[in-house]
Simulated assay, not measured.
Amino acid sequence: MRRRSHSHTFDDNLNAERARIIAELENTQPGPQRDLVESKLRQLETASAIDGWLTSPGLQPPEE
């Protein structure tokens, strides 16, 4: 099994992927491929927003 020298947080991974996709967008011409890359970027932004909501200190557990 492969071991990592240091762990990455979910937020770190999202930011790295976001930077990669933004760089890809700069080199992609308008068309179906660019639309797909933009869709991936929107998915990452949604995932980041959900992660921020789930990890917020104001989030309360459900009442029973």
Rank of each mutant, 00 (worst) to 15 (best):
M1P: 11
M1S: 15
M1H: 08
R3F: 13
R4C: 09
R4H: 14
S5K: 12
S5H: 12
S5V: 06
H6G: 00
S7M: 11
S7N: 11
H8K: 15
H8I: 08
H8P: 05
H8C: 10
H8M: 11
H8F: 13
T9P: 07
D11Q: 13
D11I: 08
D11K: 10
D12G: 02
N13W: 01
N13R: 03
N13T: 01
N13F: 01
L14W: 00
L14M: 00
L14Q: 00
L14H: 00
N15H: 11
N15E: 12
A16Q: 15
A16M: 14
A16T: 15
E17A: 01
E17R: 00
R18L: 04
A19T: 15
R20G: 04
I21R: 01
I21L: 06
I21T: 01
A23F: 01
E24C: 07
L25D: 00
L25W: 01
L25A: 00
E26H: 11
E26M: 11
N27F: 12
T28I: 03
T28V: 05
T28N: 00
Q29T: 13
Q29I: 14
P30C: 05
G31A: 07
G31S: 08
G31W: 05
G31H: 07
P32V: 13
Q33A: 10
D35C: 06
D35G: 07
L36T: 02
L36W: 03
L36G: 02
V37L: 02
V37A: 00
E38T: 03
E38M: 06
E38I: 03
E38Q: 07
S39D: 05
S39C: 05
S39H: 09
L41H: 07
L41G: 05
R42V: 02
R42F: 05
Q43S: 04
L44W: 02
L44I: 09
L44T: 02
L44Y: 02
E45C: 10
T46V: 09
T46F: 10
T46Q: 13
T46I: 10
T46M: 12
A47W: 08
A47Q: 09
S48Y: 08
S48I: 05
S48K: 10
A49E: 12
I50H: 07
I50Q: 06
D51T: 11
D51F: 14
G52T: 04
G52S: 09
L54M: 15
L54C: 12
T55V: 03
S56K: 05
S56F: 03
P57I: 06
P57C: 04
P57E: 12
G58C: 11
L59M: 14
L59V: 09
L59R: 15
Q60S: 12
P61I: 05
P62C: 01
P62S: 05
E63H: 01
